[in-house]
């Protein structure tokens, strides 16, 4: 197995809000291996984006801060780096594609300017070289007539093209880690397939690691090597993509897998559902956070939080009852 490029351990991130301090992610640990794709799945609001923003040190300021844990990247703890050091890593070594492409692009600057800016910031290019390189990168992400597109503005491009430009910018400096937060949620299936294929291709060409955040389990199954499942700010299960799909150990993961309509489910048959709602961050239960929705809960589940246990060498789960299920 390849070695860890990024190791997140016991990470805790909190926000100051009007109603008090909320702990958006609590004791989150996982590793992204070199050259692999790690998927993060979980219900809306479970802390996927906050995890990514914490790694990048891009939490909204001054409300958000990392209060515990470490993020080891190539042996350095990113949570302790001075901001100037972190800025050098961002965009060059670690890049991020945000949930909404339009927010990542500046509407009043041309596509060309936005890519060359990144190149000039991190590389010793002359302006001329940066332009040539930018055209090459646009071509690589499949933008037709890249030299013409260089002079255009974001609103002149379709949604799929914009997302490819955002990816082009993220890839401009050949990062060793790409964090993609729902890169295809806003796109339709054919464009989604193009973007995922593109990320895969670039990954094998450049040997980069990818962290892919999504709630689409189909996308996870197709692109990921390992998967982290989050629920209400905690990691509840992690393992290889085969562990998760063939042998899900956590009741939440099982519920998720059972609820998706597949091409081979009987038409109009009742889909299974996970009843109830995620507890709010301000009134989290003492015990297991999934307890109020869990079909297997028992009284002891409400007393303490289950710890992470080993199912196999590649597979971990946080549930008191995984062995009974």
């Amino acid at each position: 197995m390849s070695e860890a490029l990024l190791e997140v351990s016991h990470l805790v991130t909190e926000f100051d809000t009007d109603e008090g301090v909320v702990r958006a992610i609590d004791d989150v640990s996982f590793a992204a291996l070199a050259g692999e794709t790690l998927g993060i799945v979980g219900e809306s609001g479970c802390g996927k984006s906050v995890t990514a923003l914490s790694i990048m040190r891009l939490l909204p300021q001054p409300m958000g801060k990392i209060t515990d844990g470490e993020v080891l990247f190539k042996g350095r703890d990113l949570t302790q780096l001075p901001l100037t050091e972190m800025q050098k890593i961002r965009g060059a070594d670690i890049s991020m594609v945000f949930q909404e492409p339009m927010t990542a692009l500046n509407p009043v600057h041309t596509i060309g300017r936005q890519i060359t800016e990144v190149l000039l910031l991190h590389r010793n290019y002359t302006a001329q070289e940066a332009i040539q390189e930018a055209v090459k990168i646009l071509d690589r992400v499949g933008i037709p007539s890249p030299d013409i597109r260089m002079g255009e503005y974001p609103h002149q491009l379709s949604g799929g093209m914009r997302q490819r430009v955002v990816i082009a910018i993220a890839l401009a400096c050949n990062p060793s880690l790409l964090i993609a937060d729902e890169p295809t949620t806003a796109l339709d299936v054919t464009i989604q397939a193009q973007i995922l294929e593109l990320i895969k291709e670039l990954q094998s060409d450049l040997g980069m690691s990818v962290i892919l955040i999504t709630h689409d389990l189909g996308v996870i199954a197709e692109t990921c090597d390992h998967v982290v499942v989050m629920y209400a700010g905690k990691v509840v299960e992690k393992g290889s993509v085969y562990d998760l799909f063939d042998n899900p150990a956590h009741p939440y993961t099982r519920g998720l897998l059972a609820s998706i309509p597949r091409l081979d489910t009987i038409p109009k048959a009742k889909l299974s559902v996970i009843d109830g709602m995620v507890p709010g961050l301000l009134d989290l239960p003492q015990g297991c956070r999934f307890e109020n929705r869990c079909p297997h809960s028992q009284p002891s589940c409400t007393h303490a939080s289950p710890l992470i246990e080993q199912v196999s060498t590649s597979h971990e789960v946080s549930c008191f009852r995984w062995q009974d299920l």
């Binding site: 379709s158 299936v189 989604q192 397939a193 193009q194 199954a221 197709e222 085969y242 799909f245 597949r262």
Partner: peptide, 20 residues
Amino acid sequence: AAIPVPDPHRKVQRQIISGD
């Protein structure tokens, strides 16, 4: 062909239409 299938054993090489 573009529907992602929630089954890791079926990682297929898809035929993807290009262009917008």
